[in-house]
Design a protein around this nucleic acid. Structure first.
Lengths: 218, 218
DNA sequence: CCAAAAGTGTTAGTGATACACCCATGT
DNA sequence: ACATGGGTGTATCACTAACACTTTTGG
């Protein structure tokens, strides 16, 4: 790509959260090209002229992870003069949360193999991506308390303990089992399944599913 | 300006709220140039290549109203393909709230004289500005409940009844006088002044000021 | 029978809401 | 004296937070 100094460029960056090894992680790529060649960064790329912002974010996510049909939340733009040495680049960050278990991370033309990094142990990052991630993490935490976004990250059938673990890892704090369950049952967003999950030497756990598998604010 | 189809353009639009005649109003201009010539629209304009987004928003606000040093909140971008017939234009809306009393609205090269319009009685608007305003109004309502943003719209010294009126007009609902005052006194954001305001045939009202005259979340 | 996670209710505290009368002034 | 808006306190309700024991299974 041949950058001109007389125009704007628009990119999207994806802050893709998942839980792996009981830790909150995001996808980080390593840049193959300048600027910040060899540095770590969020996956993202240029928006095409005939492409919607949301469309570009979906495309980037698909290229990196193979994941599609996921809820992507648009965040406020970051566009300081000088944030990209190639020219004037405005970036629109998107927040996503996915179940990382079955995701195959891909290389793309601009990036070496993408990797999951713990949110608490990130490498030094290119551009203003550290600031973007911190902003996105705050949004994720308020989303999980005010929407059903958790359905994106948990298997179709799950136990309440598993769901609680998701909340605890995202919010980075212990929750009370009884209070957590009471709140959920008041919200009426879960469906109790006839099945149970037997795993390990203890009482089997009831399985649940989300009534609605699309994004919804409470 | 000579638009090219091979690049992005970036604009800022300002949703500038005030209260006039006991109504919540915003600044609306009438466009002098295509596209949407003669239509009503939000004040705004193109971001310069060497100008920060916030800087552009400040400049636009100053040009339209003469107001500066005001809190401007950046909102999520609107950038659908085809929203502007001149080319691919991404707009970043900003939310502001100002005291309208002393504001002189100016004409600019792109706009006939700006006017205040009631939020509940807007004319047909250019571009996707209706959607932007609706989004901004929601943000304003949550801001006024979670921050001290009201200091922007009220005189330095004010009575509690005047402040309550501001909240009622923005939220478009009646509030209980005692509950409103209790909440404020718990927040400790106001300073009681030694002065009172005598106006009309009734008991004089105590004057207050905000302790902090800069934006702060509770 | 022991270990391990599942499941289940009550109490206290905090914040939100509803509500009615007296006060100080001008006319 | 009366009309007008200013000023004040309490009771109820809803939501949040804290807390411990019994159940069911595998080994």
């Amino acid at each position: 790509m041949n950058f001109k100094k007389d125009r704007f460029y628009v990119t999207v960056d994806a802050v893709v959260f998942t839980i792996l090894d009981n830790e909150l992680k995001i996808i980080i790529i390593r840049r193959k090209n300048p600027p910040f060649k060899g540095y770590f960064a969020l996956p993202g790329g240029f928006v095409e002229l005939d492409e919607n912002l949301d469309g570009a974010a979906e495309r980037e996510l698909k290229e990196e992870t193979g994941v599609e049909n996921i809820f992507l939340k648009k965040l406020k733009p970051f566009g300081k003069v000088g944030r990209d040495s190639r020219g004037r680049v405005i970036t629109i960050p998107y927040l996503a949360i996915i179940s990382g278990k079955n995701v195959k991370l891909h290389s793309t033309c601009d990036a070496e193999l993408a990797r999951w990094y713990s949110i608490y142990n990130l490498p030094k990052l290119a551009f203003d991506h550290k600031e973007i991630i911190s902003y996105a993490l705050n949004k994720l935490r308020s989303e999980i308390e005010k929407s059903n976004i958790a359905f994106q990250i948990i298997p179709k059938k799950f136990t309440l303990t598993e769901l609680q673990r998701v909340y605890e890892i995202i919010l980075n704090k212990k929750l009370d089992k009884r209070n957590f369950r009471k709140k959920l049952s008041e919200l009426l967003i879960l469906k109790e399944l006839p099945e149970t999950k037997m795993e390990g030497a203890h009482r089997p756990a009831r399985l649940y599913s989300f009534r609605l598998r699309e994004y919804k604010k409470f």
